[in-house]
């Protein structure tokens, strides 16, 4: 089963929930944790894995053999991202703009284009206790997260429970991360910002056809609007974590809820059971 943990907005406690869920389930199932928040991967801070496998990821960008190239301009014509241009005597490539689609090299009539890998990030795998851990890390200064996310996801092992920590937002990196999940947990807080962003996240999951449920974090000093919204949209609120100075302090030191306050492990196992129920139910009657 693949469970992704997402939130419309950053800083709602997504990492706290993903890592606590992984730690709580590790004695019940083969657990894998994949940190797809490749712009700011933080899970490693909380579960302190031993990394034993590192792999560079990149984008295949064109290299033009000027001796063969006739400056016909076909490559520039087919490139949708203006990453290759022909200007008089020169063929210019702009590797930072290239999406690595392969169109130019395939369509060059002279076969003058080969590809070289441009590194944009790394994928790191290892173990934290019995948890299989993988994270992606976008190189600072690089713009495109999805290729790095795709590589992280290639390491998904569907035998046990795979937990995916998705990046914040609702745009393509999020879609890339949650695509293919059986369930998505949306972490939010009971504030107008939280509600606004939750609505966007819910719309994204609907679009992708992924069932979702809410974890309400920092409940206490907020308003009731998130709960009311979930009720009206028939989205289950599966767990509530109170606004609590102790939890905030543990978090600031890089300690998860499941580790810092072990009583919470039971809550997370309960959360997992509820998710399993929803997913099973849905598999029985997929038309719902």
């Amino acid at each position: 089963m693949i469970i992704s943990v997402a939130s419309g907005k950053g800083g709602t406690g997504k990492t706290l929930i993903a890592t606590s869920l992984a730690l709580s389930l590790r004695n019940k199932a083969q657990v894998q944790l994949l940190d797809c928040d490749v712009e700011e991967p933080n899970d490693h801070i909380f579960i302190r894995p031993v990394i034993d496998r590192t792999e560079a990821v990149g984008i295949p960008v064109p290299v033009v053999d000027e001796a063969i190239c006739t400056r016909c301009g076909r490559c520039a014509e087919v490139c949708a991202f203006n990453a290759i241009a022909v200007a008089g005597e020169y063929v210019l490539t702009f590797p930072e703009l290239c999406h690595g689609c392969g169109a130019c090299s395939y369509l060059c009539p002279e076969k003058a284009i080969t590809e070289e890998n441009r590194e944009t990030g790394v994928i790191e795998s290892g173990k934290a206790d019995s948890i299989d851990f993988t994270q992606g890390r976008l190189t600072v200064g690089e713009a495109m997260a999805p290729p790095v996310i795709r590589k992280v996801k290639e390491r998904t092992n569907n035998d046990g429970v795979a937990i995916i920590d998705a990046p914040p937002g609702t745009s393509c990196p999020v879609v890339e991360s949650v695509k293919g999940s059986d369930f998505c947990l949306l972490v939010t807080e009971p504030t107008p910002f939280g509600l606004n962003d939750l609505k966007l996240a819910v719309a994204t999951m609907k679009e992708l056809g992924i069932p979702c449920g809410v974890v309400l974090n920092r409940a206490g000093n907020g308003d009731k609007n998130v709960i009311d919204y979930c009720e009206s949209e028939y989205i289950p609120v599966l767990m509530t974590v109170p606004l609590d100075m102790e939890i905030a302090r543990l978090y600031s030191r890089g300690i998860t809820l499941a580790e810092g306050i072990p009583a919470w492990q039971k809550e997370f196992i309960g959360l997992f059971d509820k998710i399993t129920e929803i997913v099973d139910e849905r598999n029985r009657c997929p038309e719902r």
Binding site: E39, L138, P173
Partner: peptide, 10 residues
């Protein structure tokens, strides 16, 4: 600004 370090931040 947006969160992260990717395209929108740049």
């Amino acid at each position: 600004g947006p969160p992260g370090i990717g395209c929108p931040v740049i």
